[in-house]
Amino acid sequence: MAELKDGSIALIDYGAGNLTSVRKAFAAVGANLFVPATPADVEDAAAVVVPGVGHFDATRVLDAEWVEAILARVGEGRPLLGICLGMQWLFEGSEEAPDCAGLGLLAGRCYRLQGRAPKSREVRLKPDTTIKDASHSRDASNGRGVRLEPDTVIKVPHVGWNTIELRGEASLIDGVQSGAQVYFTHSFVAPVTGDTVAVTEHGESFAAIVQRGYVAGVQFHPEKSGDVGLQILRNWLEQVG
């Protein structure tokens, strides 16, 4: 990290991130981020952070020029970190906004957590929630083990502190323990694939941390996950070096 030039990490603002919190957390671990006004401003970035909360459709703001600028940095081996919606954007797309393509750096499409509604709620489910999800027929072959206890209510959105279970090794999880808790707030998730380095369970398993070389993402909010979150940001900064 000694070589890290102050303000050389780009924080992408597409109107769907709590930039204040992300910047504050990075500042706490020694990095000042800048917000590029145009895709051209990303050119000299040593690394790129794509934050995000909200609807996948919000990523539409990141048009071809932004995509090209970000992919160019990745092509040069500059680290890219996606947070929450920013992580989902690294994948091919999401059923939340089917006509809106993701960056496609990671294989797979994001989908809605199935959840399990409280009994009294079942009669008034809207067509776009659980009933529709059930029709997506997620069988065992897709690698996601669905383990719903018959009487347990699984609320969606998934909000709060949940555990991450580590799988294998990756620089992003150095010094992080399996079973550590981090703060989530989301309804859609990315599938567990070969790029998954940590999983979390909420009715079903999903990707909590992904890393493929210089492309990394976290489904939770490291900027809101106390010491564990700051450790993960520190690890990522090591990669920026």
Partner: peptide, 8 residues
């Protein structure tokens, strides 16, 4: 209230 809604 908790049984009536899907949000926390």
């Amino acid at each position: 209230v908790s049984r009536a809604v899907s949000i926390p």
